[in-house]
Design a protein around this nucleic acid. Structure first.
Length: 256
DNA sequence: ATGCCTCAGCTCCTGAGA
């Protein structure tokens, strides 16, 4: 089983690239973030022709998430039960025997801002819910754009970005608290190239200079950790002519 | 330097992203 997550920064703009990518990377599950479109504009037909069924949770202009699956997804939940939110950030479903959660975590803008406070409460809400999900679904994958780095290894300029957004101790505390529920950062289960990032600023030739952050993550539960055979960041789509600022992260999983 | 890109929208500027 192969699963992937990709923040596409507008599905309208990126649809051809997503279809191209799926052709060469026929994953079983692709979680998309930042669709930036409403459900009535979701390109179901294009994905059907590509062999995928889609569950989407869109929103005008901002946010919006979807799950593309080869086999139909069931028991779909949108956003975080128990956490009132007017933004479309989370979609989850059963795919085979795996509970899959795709999320677009809040950006947070700047420590101390209202948006940062929202990010902190959202992270708490997510954790309380994921704890419950884990109690009933031992095989669980939580993936998406977390907008948080784990540590300095995920940051191109850890000195310059110290205590900046995506790199604060408060955000990292919440990330570690998710791990403490019994989840594992699939990417770090393997030896990885130094300076591996999943996002690069559009400005100042960020990608060319590898000025990036690793903020897109795939967390896997205890029950499937030993089945994980690889986890990589696919930089290829970032070399497209009009790329998303994020690259896909791909997980390969052997299930008994 | 509060900008550098990119995207959406009540679109020719602004807000947001990260």
């Amino acid at each position: 089983m192969k699963l992937a997550t990709w923040n596409v920064n507008s599905l309208t703009v990126r649809l051809p690239q997503v279809l191209d990518w799926l052709k060469s990377n026929p994953v079983d599950v692709l979680a998309l973030q930042e669709l930036k479109l409403t459900d009535d504009k979701f390109p179901h037909e294009a994905f059907t022709q590509a062999g995928y069924s889609a569950q989407c949770f869109g929103q005008k202009t901002y946010n919006g998430v979807a799950l593309l699956t080869r086999t139909p997804a069931v028991n779909v939940i949108k956003n975080i039960p128990g956490f009132a939110d007017d933004m479309a950030r989370v979609i989850s479903a059963d795919v085979g025997e795996v509970r899959v959660i795709g999320g677009y975590f809040p950006n947070g803008q700047e420590p101390g801002s209202e948006k940062f406070d929202y990010k902190m409460s959202w992270l708490k809400g997510l954790r309380d819910w994921v704890r419950e999900e884990l109690a009933t679904h031992s095989k669980l994958v939580l993936m998406g754009d977390y907008n948080i780095t784990f540590d300095d290894a995920d940051v191109w300029d850890p000195v310059g970005m110290k205590d900046q957004i995506h790199c604060t101790e408060e955000e990292r505390y919440h990330l570690r608290a998710l791990i403490a529920l019994g989840l594992h950062d699939a990417f770090r289960l393997f030896q990885q190239p130094a300076k591996s990032y999943s996002w690069w600023d559009y400005r100042d030739f960020g990608f060319r200079r590898n000025h990036g952050l690793r903020i897109d993550h795939i967390l896997v539960s205890d029950a499937i950790k030993s089945g994980v055979t690889s986890c990589v960041i696919d930089r290829a789509p970032r070399k497209n002519e009009r790329p998303s600022d994020h690259a896909p992260v791909v997980l390969e999983l052997g299930l008994p």
